[in-house]
Protein backbone atom coordinates (compact mmCIF):
# COMPACT_ATOMS: atom_id res chain seq x y z
CA UNK A 1 0.00 0.00 0.00
CA UNK A 2 2.75 2.41 0.92
CA UNK A 3 4.67 1.45 -2.23
CA UNK A 4 1.64 2.16 -4.42
CA UNK A 5 1.25 5.62 -2.89
CA UNK A 6 4.92 6.38 -3.54
CA UNK A 7 4.68 5.37 -7.21
CA UNK A 8 1.62 7.55 -7.70
CA UNK A 9 3.41 10.48 -6.18
CA UNK A 10 6.46 10.04 -8.39
CA UNK A 11 4.31 9.66 -11.52
CA UNK A 12 2.29 12.74 -10.61
CA UNK A 13 5.48 14.69 -10.15
CA UNK A 14 6.80 13.70 -13.56
CA UNK A 15 3.57 14.57 -15.33
CA UNK A 16 3.28 17.94 -13.64
CA UNK A 17 6.87 18.92 -14.26
CA UNK A 18 8.10 19.08 -17.87
CA UNK A 19 11.45 20.16 -16.47
CA UNK A 20 11.77 16.87 -14.65
CA UNK A 21 11.24 14.96 -17.89
CA UNK A 22 13.86 17.11 -19.57
CA UNK A 23 16.34 16.06 -16.91
CA UNK A 24 16.10 12.50 -18.09
CA UNK A 25 16.87 13.62 -21.63
CA UNK A 26 20.27 14.78 -20.55
CA UNK A 27 20.19 18.44 -19.64
CA UNK A 28 20.15 18.16 -15.87
CA UNK A 29 23.91 17.83 -15.81
CA UNK A 30 24.54 20.95 -17.78
CA UNK A 31 27.89 22.29 -16.62
CA UNK A 32 30.17 25.01 -17.87
CA UNK A 33 33.23 24.24 -19.91
CA UNK A 34 34.01 22.42 -23.11
CA UNK A 35 35.42 19.03 -23.90
CA UNK A 36 39.22 19.06 -24.22
CA UNK A 37 39.41 15.34 -24.90
CA UNK A 38 41.73 14.12 -27.60
CA UNK A 39 45.39 13.80 -28.52
CA UNK A 40 47.43 16.97 -28.78
CA UNK A 41 50.95 17.94 -29.74
CA UNK A 42 52.64 21.30 -29.21
CA UNK A 43 53.25 23.60 -32.15
CA UNK A 44 56.53 25.55 -32.19
CA UNK A 45 56.39 28.22 -29.50
CA UNK A 46 58.46 30.79 -27.66
CA UNK A 47 60.02 28.25 -25.31
CA UNK A 48 60.80 25.68 -28.01
CA UNK A 49 64.52 26.21 -27.67
CA UNK A 50 65.53 22.58 -27.72
CA UNK A 51 68.36 21.88 -25.34
CA UNK A 52 69.09 25.29 -23.84
CA UNK A 53 72.65 26.57 -23.82
CA UNK A 54 74.62 26.85 -20.60
CA UNK A 55 73.89 30.18 -18.91
CA UNK A 56 71.00 31.01 -21.25
CA UNK A 57 68.70 32.46 -18.63
CA UNK A 58 67.17 35.09 -20.93
CA UNK A 59 63.63 36.08 -20.14
CA UNK A 60 63.34 34.18 -16.89
CA UNK A 61 62.56 36.30 -13.81
CA UNK A 62 65.06 34.57 -11.55
CA UNK A 63 66.48 35.91 -8.34
CA UNK A 64 70.21 36.13 -7.57
CA UNK A 65 70.26 32.77 -5.83
CA UNK A 66 68.73 30.92 -8.77
CA UNK A 67 71.22 32.59 -11.11
CA UNK A 68 74.15 31.52 -8.92
CA UNK A 69 72.82 27.98 -8.78
CA UNK A 70 72.40 27.91 -12.55
CA UNK A 71 75.98 29.07 -13.03
CA UNK A 72 77.25 26.36 -10.69
CA UNK A 73 75.44 23.64 -12.65
CA UNK A 74 77.54 21.28 -14.68
CA UNK A 75 75.96 19.30 -17.54
CA UNK A 76 77.76 16.30 -16.10
CA UNK A 77 75.13 16.34 -13.34
CA UNK A 78 72.88 14.31 -15.63
CA UNK A 79 75.41 11.48 -15.59
CA UNK A 80 74.57 10.88 -11.92
CA UNK A 81 72.33 7.78 -11.94
CA UNK A 82 69.55 9.40 -9.93
CA UNK A 83 69.41 12.34 -12.34
CA UNK A 84 69.29 10.27 -15.52
CA UNK A 85 65.55 9.62 -15.30
CA UNK A 86 64.73 12.95 -13.68
CA UNK A 87 61.35 14.00 -15.02
CA UNK A 88 60.58 17.55 -16.10
CA UNK A 89 58.18 19.01 -13.56
CA UNK A 90 54.66 19.91 -14.72
CA UNK A 91 55.43 23.56 -15.52
CA UNK A 92 58.35 22.58 -17.78
CA UNK A 93 57.13 19.33 -19.30
CA UNK A 94 54.13 21.02 -20.92
CA UNK A 95 56.60 22.89 -23.12
CA UNK A 96 57.31 19.66 -24.95
CA UNK A 97 58.30 17.88 -26.98
CA UNK A 98 55.49 15.57 -26.00
CA UNK A 99 52.28 13.94 -27.04
CA UNK A 100 49.39 14.84 -24.77
CA UNK A 101 46.21 12.84 -24.37
CA UNK A 102 43.31 14.42 -22.48
CA UNK A 103 40.14 12.68 -21.35
CA UNK A 104 37.37 13.10 -18.81
CA UNK A 105 36.37 10.91 -15.90
CA UNK A 106 32.70 11.22 -14.99
CA UNK A 107 30.59 9.69 -12.25
CA UNK A 108 28.77 6.78 -13.79
CA UNK A 109 25.33 7.56 -12.37
CA UNK A 110 25.16 11.34 -12.67
CA UNK A 111 27.74 11.85 -15.45
CA UNK A 112 29.03 14.74 -13.39
CA UNK A 113 32.59 15.64 -14.30
CA UNK A 114 34.85 14.31 -11.56
CA UNK A 115 38.30 14.90 -12.98
CA UNK A 116 40.17 15.60 -16.18
CA UNK A 117 43.08 13.32 -16.96
CA UNK A 118 46.19 14.05 -18.95
CA UNK A 119 48.72 11.52 -20.13
CA UNK A 120 52.02 12.99 -21.21
CA UNK A 121 54.22 10.77 -23.34
CA UNK A 122 57.51 12.30 -22.21
CA UNK A 123 58.54 10.32 -19.14
CA UNK A 124 55.08 8.65 -19.18
CA UNK A 125 53.52 11.13 -16.79
CA UNK A 126 49.91 11.24 -15.63
CA UNK A 127 48.12 14.31 -14.42
CA UNK A 128 44.77 14.30 -12.63
CA UNK A 129 42.93 17.60 -12.45
CA UNK A 130 40.30 17.26 -9.80
CA UNK A 131 37.09 19.12 -10.64
CA UNK A 132 35.16 18.25 -7.47
CA UNK A 133 36.31 21.13 -5.25
CA UNK A 134 38.42 18.87 -3.05
CA UNK A 135 41.06 20.57 -0.91
CA UNK A 136 44.74 20.39 -1.73
CA UNK A 137 46.68 17.99 0.50
CA UNK A 138 48.34 19.14 3.70
CA UNK A 139 51.83 20.61 3.76
CA UNK A 140 53.32 17.36 5.03
CA UNK A 141 52.17 15.32 2.02
CA UNK A 142 54.57 14.08 -0.63
CA UNK A 143 55.42 16.07 -3.74
CA UNK A 144 55.43 14.61 -7.24
CA UNK A 145 56.67 15.62 -10.68
CA UNK A 146 53.17 16.53 -11.78
CA UNK A 147 51.98 17.84 -8.41
CA UNK A 148 48.41 17.96 -7.15
CA UNK A 149 46.00 19.83 -9.40
CA UNK A 150 42.50 21.18 -9.02
CA UNK A 151 40.55 22.84 -11.79
CA UNK A 152 37.54 24.97 -12.47
CA UNK A 153 35.81 26.29 -15.54
CA UNK A 154 35.92 30.03 -16.07
CA UNK A 155 33.56 30.26 -19.02
CA UNK A 156 35.12 27.95 -21.57
CA UNK A 157 38.57 28.29 -20.07
CA UNK A 158 39.85 25.52 -17.83
CA UNK A 159 41.91 27.06 -15.04
CA UNK A 160 44.15 24.65 -13.14
CA UNK A 161 46.03 25.27 -9.90
CA UNK A 162 48.87 22.91 -8.96
CA UNK A 163 50.79 22.52 -5.71
CA UNK A 164 53.02 19.78 -4.23
CA UNK A 165 55.50 19.83 -7.10
CA UNK A 166 58.94 18.33 -6.81
CA UNK A 167 62.02 20.44 -7.33
CA UNK A 168 63.09 20.54 -10.96
CA UNK A 169 64.16 22.83 -13.76
CA UNK A 170 62.82 26.20 -14.83
CA UNK A 171 65.02 25.56 -17.83
CA UNK A 172 67.01 22.42 -18.47
CA UNK A 173 70.39 24.06 -18.12
CA UNK A 174 70.50 23.99 -14.36
CA UNK A 175 68.13 26.88 -13.78
CA UNK A 176 66.29 25.59 -10.75
CA UNK A 177 62.66 25.52 -9.73
CA UNK A 178 62.10 24.65 -6.08
CA UNK A 179 59.54 22.37 -4.49
CA UNK A 180 57.79 25.49 -3.21
CA UNK A 181 56.70 26.47 -6.70
CA UNK A 182 53.04 26.61 -7.66
CA UNK A 183 51.54 26.55 -11.13
CA UNK A 184 48.43 28.21 -12.53
CA UNK A 185 47.36 27.19 -16.05
CA UNK A 186 44.64 28.23 -18.45
CA UNK A 187 43.53 25.87 -21.21
CA UNK A 188 41.50 27.46 -24.03
CA UNK A 189 40.28 25.35 -26.95
CA UNK A 190 39.68 26.84 -30.39
CA UNK A 191 38.61 23.96 -32.58
CA UNK A 192 41.66 21.86 -33.29
CA UNK A 193 43.96 24.22 -31.41
CA UNK A 194 44.48 24.39 -27.69
CA UNK A 195 46.06 27.48 -26.14
CA UNK A 196 47.96 26.82 -22.92
CA UNK A 197 49.02 29.68 -20.66
CA UNK A 198 51.09 28.83 -17.61
CA UNK A 199 52.23 30.94 -14.70
CA UNK A 200 54.84 29.68 -12.24
CA UNK A 201 55.46 31.33 -8.90
CA UNK A 202 58.35 30.26 -6.72
CA UNK A 203 59.45 32.21 -3.65
CA UNK A 204 62.80 30.43 -3.66
CA UNK A 205 63.89 31.16 -7.25
CA UNK A 206 61.66 33.79 -8.89
CA UNK A 207 61.11 37.50 -8.25
CA UNK A 208 57.98 37.61 -10.43
CA UNK A 209 55.63 35.02 -11.90
CA UNK A 210 57.12 33.26 -14.93
CA UNK A 211 54.48 33.31 -17.68
CA UNK A 212 54.63 31.20 -20.82
CA UNK A 213 52.18 30.45 -23.61
CA UNK A 214 52.05 27.73 -26.19
CA UNK A 215 49.68 26.18 -28.67
CA UNK A 216 48.84 22.52 -29.03
CA UNK A 217 47.27 21.20 -32.19
CA UNK A 218 44.99 18.20 -32.32
CA UNK A 219 46.59 15.07 -33.73
CA UNK A 220 44.80 12.07 -35.14
CA UNK A 221 47.67 10.21 -36.77
CA UNK A 222 48.48 6.72 -35.62
CA UNK A 223 51.97 5.75 -34.56
CA UNK A 224 52.69 8.50 -32.10
CA UNK A 225 55.34 7.64 -29.55
CA UNK A 226 53.60 7.22 -26.21
CA UNK A 227 56.13 5.28 -24.16
CA UNK A 228 59.24 6.46 -22.32
CA UNK A 229 60.98 3.68 -20.44
CA UNK A 230 64.00 4.98 -18.56
CA UNK A 231 66.55 3.00 -16.61
CA UNK A 232 69.64 4.55 -15.09
CA UNK A 233 73.03 3.07 -15.91
CA UNK A 234 76.67 3.78 -15.06
CA UNK A 235 77.66 6.44 -17.56
CA UNK A 236 81.03 7.43 -16.10
CA UNK A 237 83.33 4.56 -15.19
CA UNK A 238 84.80 4.93 -11.69
CA UNK A 239 82.58 7.89 -10.85
CA UNK A 240 82.96 8.15 -7.07
CA UNK A 241 79.93 7.22 -4.98
CA UNK A 242 77.88 10.31 -4.25
CA UNK A 243 79.68 12.46 -6.82
CA UNK A 244 77.77 15.67 -7.61
CA UNK A 245 79.41 17.43 -10.57
CA UNK A 246 79.33 21.21 -10.09
CA UNK A 247 81.38 24.31 -10.77
CA UNK A 248 82.90 26.10 -7.84
CA UNK A 249 82.08 29.83 -7.64
CA UNK A 250 83.59 31.78 -10.56
CA UNK A 251 85.05 28.64 -12.13
CA UNK A 252 82.43 27.87 -14.80
CA UNK A 253 84.33 28.42 -18.08
CA UNK A 254 81.21 28.40 -20.26
CA UNK A 255 79.27 31.34 -18.85
CA UNK A 256 79.98 33.69 -21.76
CA UNK A 257 79.67 31.07 -24.51
CA UNK A 258 76.00 31.65 -25.31
CA UNK A 259 76.36 35.43 -25.20
CA UNK A 260 79.34 35.33 -27.57
CA UNK A 261 77.65 32.93 -30.00
CA UNK A 262 74.63 35.18 -30.49
CA UNK A 263 76.27 38.57 -29.90
CA UNK A 264 74.15 39.28 -26.86
CA UNK A 265 75.43 41.24 -23.85
CA UNK A 266 76.31 38.84 -21.05
CA UNK A 267 74.14 40.80 -18.63
CA UNK A 268 71.12 39.95 -20.76
CA UNK A 269 71.83 36.23 -20.94
CA UNK A 270 71.99 36.02 -17.17
CA UNK A 271 68.27 36.70 -16.99
CA UNK A 272 66.18 38.37 -14.33
CA UNK A 273 62.75 39.97 -14.44
CA UNK A 274 63.82 42.97 -16.51
CA UNK A 275 64.90 40.69 -19.38
CA UNK A 276 61.26 39.65 -19.84
CA UNK A 277 59.98 43.05 -20.85
CA UNK A 278 60.18 44.96 -24.17
CA UNK A 279 61.83 47.90 -22.41
CA UNK A 280 64.92 45.75 -21.98
CA UNK A 281 65.68 46.17 -25.69
CA UNK A 282 66.73 49.75 -24.94
CA UNK A 283 69.09 48.53 -22.24
CA UNK A 284 70.46 45.89 -24.62
CA UNK A 285 71.42 48.66 -27.04
CA UNK A 286 73.07 50.61 -24.25
CA UNK A 287 75.00 47.53 -23.13
CA UNK A 288 76.02 46.78 -26.72
CA UNK A 289 77.23 50.38 -27.14
CA UNK A 290 79.31 50.05 -23.97
CA UNK A 291 80.98 46.94 -25.39
CA UNK A 292 82.11 48.92 -28.44
Amino acid sequence: MRHTSLLILIFAGLVQSPGAMAQFSGSFNAQPGIDLSGAWSPAPHEESIGNPAIADFLGVPINKGARALGLAWSPSRVTVPEHQCQVHVAPYIMGGPLNLRIWEERQSQSQKLEDIRMYISTYEQNRTIWMDDRPHPPEAAAHTWMGFSTGKWEGNTLTVYTTHLKAGYLRRNGLPESDQATLTEHFMRHGDYLLHVSEVTDPATLTEPFVRTQIFRRISEEGQNWLYPCESVVEIANQPRGAVPNYLPDENPFIAEFAAKYGIPLAATLGGAETMYPEFQRKMKELAALRK
Binding site: R77, Q86, W145, D179, N246
Partner: peptide, 28 residues
Protein backbone atom coordinates in the same frame (compact mmCIF):
# COMPACT_ATOMS: atom_id res chain seq x y z
CA UNK B 1 58.84 3.06 -8.68
CA UNK B 2 58.85 5.00 -11.94
CA UNK B 3 61.11 7.74 -13.33
CA UNK B 4 62.62 8.69 -9.95
CA UNK B 5 59.25 8.92 -8.21
CA UNK B 6 57.42 6.88 -5.60
CA UNK B 7 58.55 3.39 -4.63
CA UNK B 8 60.39 3.74 -1.34
CA UNK B 9 59.02 6.59 0.75
CA UNK B 10 61.15 8.60 3.16
CA UNK B 11 60.05 10.15 6.44
CA UNK B 12 62.46 12.99 7.26
CA UNK B 13 63.19 14.24 10.77
CA UNK B 14 61.30 17.41 9.94
CA UNK B 15 59.08 18.35 7.03
CA UNK B 16 57.09 16.48 4.46
CA UNK B 17 57.02 12.92 3.14
CA UNK B 18 59.63 12.35 0.44
CA UNK B 19 60.96 9.81 -1.99
CA UNK B 20 64.45 9.15 -3.31
CA UNK B 21 64.69 12.17 -5.58
CA UNK B 22 63.95 14.60 -2.74
CA UNK B 23 66.91 13.13 -0.86
CA UNK B 24 69.02 13.36 -4.04
CA UNK B 25 68.31 17.09 -4.30
CA UNK B 26 69.23 17.53 -0.64
CA UNK B 27 72.39 15.40 -0.98
CA UNK B 28 73.41 17.47 -4.01
Amino acid sequence: KHEEEGGTYIIPGHGRICDEFDVVEYRD
